[in-house]
Simulated scan of single mutants.
Amino acid sequence: MRILVTGAAGFIGRALLQRLLVDTDGADITGLDLVAAPPEASGARLSWISGGLDDRAVLEQLGAASFDRVFHLASVPGGRAEVEPALGRRVNLDASLDLLQLLAQHGNRPRVVYASSIAVYGALSGAPVSAQTEARPLISYGAHKRMVEIALADHTRRGELSGIALRLPGIVARPRPVSGFGSAFMSELLHAVSAGESYACPVSPDATAWWLSAKVAVDNLIRAGEIDVCGTLQLPALRLSIAEVMAGLALLYGAERPARVTFDPDDSIEKVFGRFPMLEVDAELALGFAHDGSAAEMITNALRAGYI
């Protein structure tokens, strides 16, 4: 088996690559990212391509190989894509479409797992959200993710790819320094409390979001590569308030460390990242996708060595 991981040096890609190197005996794995391979990514089964998908030479190099399974994680984050719209379009949309077309031309119908995003939904009304919720993205990042979902579905309809798009929620805990994401407080809160540091949280204790650890996100990506189901799915996640996360932190570290957290709510952040409704993911759970189970398990998984 030949496996391709794009964005392989990123937060999720790095953890996925580690898992694949351990769990897929005999598979030849190609990692692609703008930077060099991370130190822990090594071995005779791993090939590395340093470059971007928006580089024609990189695409030609990929086109020379045939892959059985592809995890497409590479993207320009939403905040940067808004500031640099040409870059966002070139990488998140144009290069992704080119990659799908290239994979489709080999004729072997590879399994393609695409990391989409809850950004496709846009403003959340308070009604429960599922993969069937109408997509109304409010930023270019979400719009481009939705366009690639549609293109993947079309290639799948034509029998050229076996495509599944997973809409990822907030994944924690991103490594420090955590920046460039409006949801950075989700990771920074966990890091600060686990380290016994003071922290001014920019949302209120009542702010509610969808939480998923990097470990379980990788479990779900692996699951998506193994099953035959195609289409667009919403990954399960725990819907937790900051107060519930704080209770989980107190359970793990005692009450003293969470007591060092103060609250200085920023309404612009809380409006976007702190008012998430219920998720309806019964179908995804039935397919073997999962969340962390509890706040304490999510925190433990999120701060687990190898995923931070």
Results as ranks from 00 to 15, higher is better:
291 H>M: 05
85 P>E: 09
125 S>W: 12
159 G>F: 12
45 R>Y: 07
109 R>L: 00
186 M>Y: 15
103 L>R: 10
292 D>C: 07
228 D>I: 04
147 M>P: 00
202 P>L: 03
227 I>Y: 03
23 D>H: 12
13 G>K: 06
289 F>C: 07
103 L>F: 04
265 P>F: 01
85 P>L: 08
260 R>C: 00
99 L>Q: 08
223 R>S: 03
247 A>K: 15
292 D>G: 06
65 A>C: 04
279 L>A: 06
104 A>S: 13
247 A>S: 10
184 A>S: 12
185 F>P: 06
61 Q>S: 12
133 T>P: 09
241 S>W: 02
17 L>S: 13
231 G>E: 13
43 G>I: 00
289 F>T: 10
176 R>A: 09
206 D>E: 13
136 R>A: 13
262 T>I: 03
97 L>T: 02
186 M>T: 01
257 R>W: 15
256 E>L: 07
8 A>H: 04
43 G>V: 01
67 F>G: 04
233 L>R: 15
46 L>S: 07
243 A>P: 06
52 G>C: 01
61 Q>M: 10
59 L>W: 01
125 S>P: 08
200 A>Q: 11
249 L>Q: 09
248 G>C: 12
129 V>T: 11
285 L>H: 14
19 R>G: 04
186 M>G: 08
102 L>E: 09
176 R>K: 12
139 I>D: 10
143 A>Q: 15
125 S>N: 09
307 Y>F: 15
77 P>I: 03
72 H>P: 12
54 D>G: 03
89 R>V: 07
146 R>K: 14
103 L>V: 11
131 A>C: 02
268 S>K: 15
41 A>T: 00
204 S>P: 10
71 F>H: 14
22 V>I: 09
34 L>M: 12
174 R>D: 08
135 A>M: 11
61 Q>D: 10
30 T>P: 04
297 E>W: 05
164 I>F: 09
9 A>Q: 01
78 G>S: 15
109 R>F: 01
191 H>Y: 04
222 I>N: 00
222 I>K: 05
128 P>W: 06
82 E>C: 03
221 L>E: 02
186 M>E: 11
94 D>I: 07
179 S>C: 09
95 A>T: 08
118 I>C: 12
2 R>T: 15
59 L>F: 07
200 A>E: 12
198 S>W: 06
217 A>H: 03
102 L>I: 08
132 Q>L: 14
243 A>N: 06
188 E>Y: 06
285 L>N: 10
189 L>R: 14
191 H>M: 00
40 E>F: 00
33 D>R: 05
173 A>E: 08
8 A>L: 04
280 E>Q: 13
283 A>Q: 13
83 V>A: 02
177 P>W: 10
178 V>P: 01
216 V>R: 11
185 F>E: 10
146 R>M: 01
178 V>A: 03
111 R>I: 08
263 F>Y: 15
205 P>G: 06
50 S>N: 13
71 F>Y: 15
243 A>D: 11
43 G>Q: 10
64 A>Y: 06
203 V>T: 05
